[in-house]
Design a protein around this nucleic acid. Structure first.
Lengths: 143, 143
DNA sequence: GCGTATTATATGCCGTTTCATGCAATCGGA
DNA sequence: TCCGATTGCATGAAACGGCATATAATACGC
């Protein structure tokens, strides 16, 4: 009995995303990190400070959600928050030393997980899929 | 400053999924349906009854989340719940007449939205991406 | 420079999700 | 057929997210 959702783009994307990230989530749990924590730390792992809004757009959270998440992460000493001296409306977020230490082993695990997921596809196939996903994102930015 | 997430499969999937479904969500709001309601109704729209667990696997919700969602939807008369006579542990879920009426126009809108998202790709490109997403799902079932 | 519009973040309230667990029905082996 | 294991769903407490809105800083037109 085929369901409406079968083959429906939105569903395929949601299902694939859910599966892939849930699998990785299982690897994250021993480290005491949620997927949300992971995304924030991974995004900040290069050391640059970002404003709350810029970070929210990258990690796909609404701004109030991220503000509250950051408050919890700051309390856990994973990130540091400070007002932007150049524009005091802004709050800059930076990863802490503890956050960096916590996220470092996970960066490699994430890449390994991706390789495992994609192992049976050719480089061309992977590139094609990623290109279309990136293109979908670019196009939807203006909508 | 490229971020870790750039080009990362899990991120691309999450971002593409989020964008596509958020756009459709805006179209859903006038109908008073959340994305969760929509997924349940769309899945049940062919008339078949499903158990709570089977439905949860399809719509990608955890079982307790779906149980509570279904309770709300049953109160709103969108679905009907009854014990499975063949296995009384199971609860069968079926769409109601009101639910069917509510979801019918949305099925066409969903297909139109998908066409709009994919308009600039060839049929072969679309087929390729969907095939890989479906394959990713199948493979991850056993993991 | 003044008042208004705009941008950036924080907050409050409330509904929802999650995790752990409970309870009941069914299964399966001896 | 009995009993432990398993399966399926429900539930309670606590954490979380979403929406609307408040607050504060900056930009902009005159």
């Amino acid at each position: 009995m085929p369901k409406f959702v079968d083959g429906y783009l939105s569903y395929l994307l949601a299902a694939a995303s859910e599966r892939v990230s849930r699998e990785f989530h299982r690897q994250l749990r021993p480290y005491g990190l949620s997927v949300a924590n992971w995304r924030v730390l991974a995004t900040l792992s290069d050391g640059d400070a970002l404003s709350v809004g810029a970070l929210a757009r990258i990690v796909l959270f609404q701004q109030p959600t991220l503000t509250k998440l950051l408050a919890r992460m700051a309390k856990a000493r994973l990130v540091e928050l400070r007002a932007d001296p150049a524009d005091r409306r802004r709050t800059l977020v930076r990863i802490s030393a503890a956050g960096r230490k916590k996220v470092r082993p996970l960066l490699g695990m994430a890449k390994a997980h991706e390789r495992a997921c994609l192992a049976s596809y050719s480089a061309a196939e992977v590139a094609k899929v990623k290109a279309i996903l990136e293109d979908l994102l670019r196009r939807s930015e203006t909508r």
